[in-house]
Write a protein that binds this DNA or RNA. Structure first.
Lengths: 234, 234
DNA sequence: CCAAAAGTGTTACACGTACACCCATGA
DNA sequence: TCATGGGTGTACGTGTAACACTTTTGG
């Protein structure tokens, strides 16, 4: 096949819109939450929707997700993991459009409140999600499953917490992810066995009179654990 | 935003070619293998390549993968699992083109020999792979990692074997996937504990004088195990 | 009778899991 | 002083991993 023929053949093939959608997980008030936005485009303008965008000609899919996440939340270097490609022929009533979904883990407490207000966005607890446009509800369910599965392979829980956190906070995060309560003694034992926590001398009195010690985590050791594929079952 | 504006906006967005590629795993002669094809298109015509195709307007991504797999190998209802979306801007020197890769598990012994000959294809042992076009080598490496990870979650090993197989065959398959040797007593104990094997009275004398009993697996029990998310660590 | 692969049990150790009480503090 | 959440140790059972010998049969 000549180069010209090849170019013609490429042209014959149907092109498609390629979008990205992002399931944004956060953790606040002891609950696992999802950040969803009021859609600004027809069709279904005004309905709740995941964060999304079309992929530009000069960026790859993950960059596109990172870009739109940055544009709307100001967060950079967010934990982003590819979930799945959604490609049903009629998933978008506008035009043929496939979407590659990623999920993101961010610290919801932090600066997000203003951002949320400024973009018609809202944090919903995962089991109180409103109806979402298109196949976004499916994406959210799939992402939750993936998060559960991933939580036992990697210590991703930390991505959802602020820099300093208490053990009870960490435990309640894992309880929220797994949807069941854990024994605090066994939890501490396990977490300590990984040697990824650095105890500070500071106590957090936010949720008890006695106060709980704040920890930060040991990045080096943490990355080492992730790289070695350690199993993080809690 | 009006419907017209929305349509215009959709149109402004760059469309892309959307392709699928398929990493086809097989198991024969005690080795884990990959089926690769001589590329028939410029650029890089004649080089080794994974099985691929463009996605048509009337099919989703997984269907497209299934279709091209069927067209070239005649296999239907193959185990297919989405791997990852490859979307580097310059991954295809022809045009901007993203590709969603799946991996497939098929019984390599079976009917594939004629097919292979008829399509300029070849089974390569995974650690003797030739150079592949574009980012296909990366896809193959990623697929192997994913297969290893998946093998401990689901009893996918069976997909790669003929209907009847011996325990030593099954063991050597897992040894090939994990890249290490396993203790035969522990292996049998573990496999038996799943109750997915049905012993036949037939022996296979292909690899020993004594002969090894052939087993088939219990579909019902197998599907039940997969559904319950049982951990299949060997 | 020998080589080559199939098949079979037991033991030690690690890890997961269940479980109850004291501590520190603010109200 | 009491209510609330933080923090600690032990005992038991399950599952994993290490280990060697007998059986069958074709050449």
């Amino acid at each position: 096949m000549s180069l010209k023929q090849q170019q013609e053949w490429y042209e014959q093939q149907q092109k498609m819109h390629v979008a990205v959608d992002c399931i944004i997980f956060g953790f606040s008030e002891g609950k696992l939450k999802l950040l969803v936005f009021k859609r600004k485009l027809e069709p279904l303008s005004g309905k709740w929707s995941l964060l999304g965008s079309f992929v530009r000609g000069d960026e790859d899919v993950k960059s596109a997700t990172g870009r739109v996440l940055y544009e709307l939340t100001g967060f950079k270097d967010v934990f982003l993991k590819e979930l799945k490609c959604y490609s049903n022929v009629d998933r978008d009533p506008g035009q043929r459009c496939i979407s590659i979904a990623h999920y993101a883990l961010i610290d919801a407490e932090d600066r997000t409140k203003q951002i949320v207000a400024g973009h018609d966005a809202h944090w919903f607890t995962i089991n109180e999600l409103p109806e979402l446009v298109f196949d976004h509800t499916m994406m959210a369910m799939d992402a939750l499953e993936a998060l559960k599965a991933e939580a036992r392979r990697q210590p991703i829980g930390f991505e959802l917490l602020p820099e300093c956190f208490t053990i009870p906070q960490l435990q309640s995060l894992y309880e929220a992810i797994y949807g069941k309560s854990l024994d605090s003694r066994n939890f501490r034992k396990k977490v300590n066995s990984f040697n990824v926590l650095l105890k500070t001398n500071v106590k957090d009195y936010g949720s008890s009179k006695k106060g709980a010690y704040l920890y930060r985590f040991d990045e080096a050791r943490y990355n080492q654990l992730v790289a070695s594929g350690y199993d993080f079952v809690l």
